[in-house]
Write a protein that binds this DNA or RNA. Structure first.
Length: 614
RNA sequence: GGCUCCGUAGCUCAACUGGAUAGAGCACCUGACUACGGAUCAGGAGGUUUAAGGUUCGAAUCCUUACGGAGUCACCA
């Protein structure tokens, strides 16, 4: 039991002893004392006024005396209004630092033997990755790291959407317009190469559509279907999908390609495999740059037929029902989710069907008890439906399903729109932040003695820290504004600010040379900055647990920033190597090492690497 | 329109889940290296937490209502 738990426990006992009342643990609030007051932890006594029938000040005095009596680590207390501030003895903090300063795994829990899965990224194979994928990937990776930190074995997966009309558009455009060009022959990153043909298709299609609008056939359609309130331009804008399906030559050809693909036509399959491979090669390059890997890939082309056996199961159990036209439905009205189609009337499956089957398949593959899906919040409804159905089907993992839903990423100019070409490409973005870090690095001579390779590696780490921290510090649920200019900032509340604190510590340790730390044990009278750092260190394991419970990496980001900030302040206020005594020097070195280890661990949970110098 | 989510300093974000005088960064202004890394630190200015009610000893947080924004409501994914 740690000090906070001990205090809470004794508060409950104290209220019982002093006033004969029972209080629930959530009533016994123990929080860190605000900076402007003396003390380390504060107990709010207002909840006990009813039972005690006394003024809050009086309760504070009585409970404070009781706690100091019962808890040896508590040195003294003071009461301000209804707040009981408790002072923990320095020896307790000193002991904590002594216990952890050499632990490189401080805060991490032992393996618990339980298995979970995190699904993230999950791109379509017709376009390169963009800023939205980056938020997804960072959240997914961090979720993996955090779950791993609290003891789970985590399987990282993604579902690759490798089939469908979109990839057929790229394939068709390549077939018609590429004249045999390849990523190699054009010196284009291979996923971008495929994406370019997707764009090409859309461009050709638009031209075709515009030309068609001038024809007599189009005029006839317009006259037949026009509505009073719609202008001609607006009508045709809304008519686009219908045109694609009914009249378009290109649309017809793309759909024909999809039919051939589904019929396993060898030539189509070969082209499909070739182009998808280009995309995968490109994705892998981007993943490598971002420092993420997967344990297992699921491909939609292999899973889109799964789920039909679950449909049978649902029919047998009455979870699903069949309409006269043969389509299969789930009635989720009592869960306020309406009726949902599970199978088309022609017996083919849908998005939900596929996800039902994939979930089941994953359980068979890995036996995981939890599945975390990192998917944008536009799919909230889909996941509610999916989870509800799996629960009704009594799938064994159904209670462990979690949709890590995150908000869209906006630009200062508004929403990213692929139509308007405002989508921020992932590779471009990474290149941009690296360039910015390079410029900043060039202004300094701190790494002048290192090799070019080492310098490039440091620049890469700084750049990615800036980018990743900028995104991960925001609460996942919230829609966020991504300002490219701010994302490359290296000062203030940023990743590099935290790296800088770490690098400073490495520098101090290097400059310390050979040192002996035994004198630390006789150090007393911690100053405010030392106590602040120590108390932060103390809270780290619980913080990770909280982040895991809430699936929220932004807590970790805030913590790392707070700790770096506290260290920078400490560093300015007190000399370490020229400390006033041997004991102070030794203690501060230990404290610095503990902070260094904790920062590295914390940032690793966000997928951010620490350079030794910068 | 139904359901869900969001609204905090000029801007980007916090607030330990109902606790003390709502905190950081950016931008702006003023200071600090013959001290271990100035990618730093100290200070200033900036708020009726969209609005109005309610619950409570105590509300940015919970409950109504209004306003503003977003998402979603396919036999698409």
């Amino acid at each position: 039991m740690n000090i906070v738990e001990v205090i809470q426990d004794q508060v409950i006992k104290g209220v019982k002893t002093l006033y004969g009342a029972d209080v629930a643990p959530e009533q016994a609030v123990v929080s860190p004392t605000r900076k402007e007051f003396e003390g380390n932890y504060t107990v709010v006594v207002f909840p006990f006024t009813r039972a005690a029938k006394k003024k809050p000040e009086m309760i504070g005095e009585e409970l404070g005396a009781y706690l100091v009596q019962e808890v040896p680590e508590l040195e003294s207390f003071n009461v301000i209004k209804g707040f009981l501030n408790l002072v923990v003895a320095d020896t307790y903090w000193a002991q904590l630092v002594d216990d952890i300063y050499e632990q490189t795994n401080y805060g991490l829990q032992p393996r618990n033997g339980r298995k979970v899965m995190v699904e993230f990224s999950s791109p379509n194979t017709n376009k390169p990755l963009h800023l939205g994928h980056i938020r997804n990937i960072l959240l997914g990776w961090s979720a993996y790291k955090i779950l791993d930190a609290v003891g789970y074995d985590v399987v990282r997966v993604q579902i690759v959407n490798d089939r469908g009309i979109a990839i057929c558009k790229s394939m068709l455009a390549w077939q018609r317009f590429a004249d045999g060009a390849t990523p190699g022959s054009t010196d284009t990153k291979s996923d971008h190469f495929v994406g370019d043909y997707y764009v090409r298709f859309e461009k050709e299609f638009r031209a075709e559509y515009e030309a068609w609008q001038e024809t007599a056939a189009a005029e006839k359609v317009y006259e037949a279907e026009k509505k009073e309130e719609l202008s001609k331009a607006a009508f045709f804008k809304a008519y686009k999908d219908k045109y694609f399906n009914q009249y378009s030559e290109l649309g017809g050809a793309a759909k024909e390609m999809l039919r051939k693909w589904e019929a396993n036509d060898p030539a189509t399959r070969t082209l499909w495999e070739r182009m998808n491979q280009w995309v995968y090669d490109g994705f892998n390059e981007t993943y490598e740059k971002l420092g993420v890997t997967f344990d297992r890939l699921y491909y939609e082309s292999q899973t889109y037929l799964l789920g039909k056996q679950l449909v049978d199961k649902g029919m047998d159990s009455g979870t699903f029902y069949k309409k006269e036209d043969g389509s299969v439905w789930a009635d989720l009205e009592d869960a306020k989710l309406d009726h949902k189609t599970i199978l088309r009337s022609d017996g083919t499956s849908l998005y939900v069907t596929q996800d039902l089957g994939t979930a089941h398949q994953r359980y068979e593959d890995f036996g995981v008890e939890k599945m975390i899906y990192v998917v944008a919040d536009e799919q909230n409804y889909h996941f509610q439906v999916l989870f509800e159905i799996l629960k009704r089907l009594e799938e064994p993992y159904a209670d462990g399903l979690y949709h890590l839903s995150y908000g869209m990423v906006d630009l200062p100019s508004g929403r990213m729109k692929s139509r308007e070409g405002t989508v921020v490409d992932a590779d471009d973005l990474v290149a941009e932040v690296i360039e910015e870090a390079r410029l900043n690095s060039a202004e300094r001579d701190t790494t002048a003695d290192l090799s070019e390779d080492q310098r490039q590696d440091i620049i890469r780490k700084i750049a990615l820290a800036a980018l990743k921290f900028f995104i991960i510090k925001v609460h996942p649920k919230k829609r966020m504004v991504f300002d490219p200019k701010e994302s490359v900032d290296l000062r203030g509340q940023t990743g590099p600010y935290i790296q800088n604190a770490y690098v400073r510590i490495q520098s101090v340790i290097r400059n310390a040379g050979q040192f002996d730390l035994v004198a630390a044990s006789s150090y007393t009278g911690l100053n405010d900055e030392e106590r602040e750092l120590t108390q932060l260190l103390f809270g780290f394991p619980q913080l990770i647990q909280t982040a895991a419970n809430e699936m929220d990496p932004s807590h970790i980001a805030a913590f790392c920033y707070d700790m770096a900030k506290a260290y920078h302040k400490f560093y300015h206020e007190h000399s370490i190597l020229s400390a006033e005594s041997e004991a102070a020097r030794a203690f501060r070195l230990k404290l610095s090492m503990a902070v260094s280890n904790t920062l590295r661990t914390g940032m690793d949970l966000l997928g951010i690497e620490m350079p030794e110098r910068m």
